[in-house]
Amino acid sequence: MARLSVSNSVIYELAAENPDMSDVDRLMNLYWALCSVVRSGTPGDVVELGCNAGRTSVLLEMVLEAEGADRTLHLYDSFDGLPAPSAADRYLKQGDCRATESDVLATFARWNLRPPRVHAGWFEETLPRHLPERVAFAYLDGDFYESIRTSLTHVWPRLSAGGSVVVDDYCDRELSPRAWDGLPGVKKACDDFFAGVPASRRVLVGVGDLAFAEFRKPAG
């Protein structure tokens, strides 16, 4: 398979296909976060928790192929939509954001990419059994408090030193005044989890309403 370059035109095309979930701000921040981990040689595979139809996932695979990285992309989703929200959650409701595994594979086929390993089921069922032994990079897009807390609980212990976790919908209006604040359970889950866990946090910004945070595991 010919190596695909992640050019600016590819980024714009991906953003145009899915502007609500994968705009240019999100894609470029993910691109550089994953590139930094791959180019530093941090060991482990790449995981995305909450992949929907895979229209952001394809960027992660493009980076791996463009960088010649011998790593596997693992995707996790219930494919039954979101679970029931907790008291910390709002905006979305149970069953929203439903997609199918076939949708994911069709997205990858359309871009002529190597298919990922897809793990269907609720995070509390799939993550204990199907996470790779070592994770270099994780993208968490679970939307709700319990989904993000469960994701961190299982991913962080397997994250390699120097590895990166990027969390979507983490809104810190003090550090990123334009950030979208529709899913407050995400930040609460992260803040609760990292209250006693050593990590460096970086709130990412964009020209729009990007709500992203990156958490790095200490290198040594």
Rank of each mutant, 00 (worst) to 15 (best):
T42V: 15
R173F: 03
G196K: 13
A211D: 03
A33I: 09
C190V: 10
P157D: 06
A53N: 12
S57I: 04
W180V: 14
E65K: 08
L27K: 09
V104L: 00
D89W: 05
F137S: 00
E67W: 11
V38R: 02
Q94M: 10
F137T: 01
F193T: 10
L210T: 06
A33M: 09
E174H: 12
V46L: 09
F137P: 00
A199Y: 04
R178G: 06
I148S: 04
K93Y: 02
E13L: 01
V203C: 06
K188S: 12
V155T: 12
Y145F: 15
L152D: 03
H154P: 02
T56R: 12
L113T: 02
D77Y: 08
V6W: 10
V135K: 05
R110H: 14
A2Y: 14
W122V: 12
R117N: 03
G54W: 11
V186F: 09
A2P: 15
S40G: 03
A53R: 15
R216K: 14
Y31D: 09
S40P: 01
R98C: 11
R178K: 15
V135D: 00
R71C: 05
L152M: 14
C35Q: 13
V47L: 09
A99E: 03
M1V: 14
R110E: 14
R178I: 00
R201T: 00
I148L: 14
R39Y: 04
R39L: 08
K217L: 02
C190D: 01
P132G: 07
E48N: 05
Y91V: 14
P128K: 05
L175E: 12
D141W: 10
P128Y: 09
D25V: 11
A179Q: 08
P85H: 08
G208W: 01
L59I: 06
A199E: 02
D191Q: 08
A138P: 02
A15I: 04
E124K: 13
A138T: 00
R26V: 13
D172L: 07
T100Y: 10
L30K: 05
E67K: 14
S5N: 14
C35G: 03
G68Y: 12
A53G: 13
P184Q: 11
L152P: 06
V37C: 00
V6G: 06
P116M: 09
D143C: 10
P198Y: 08
G208P: 00
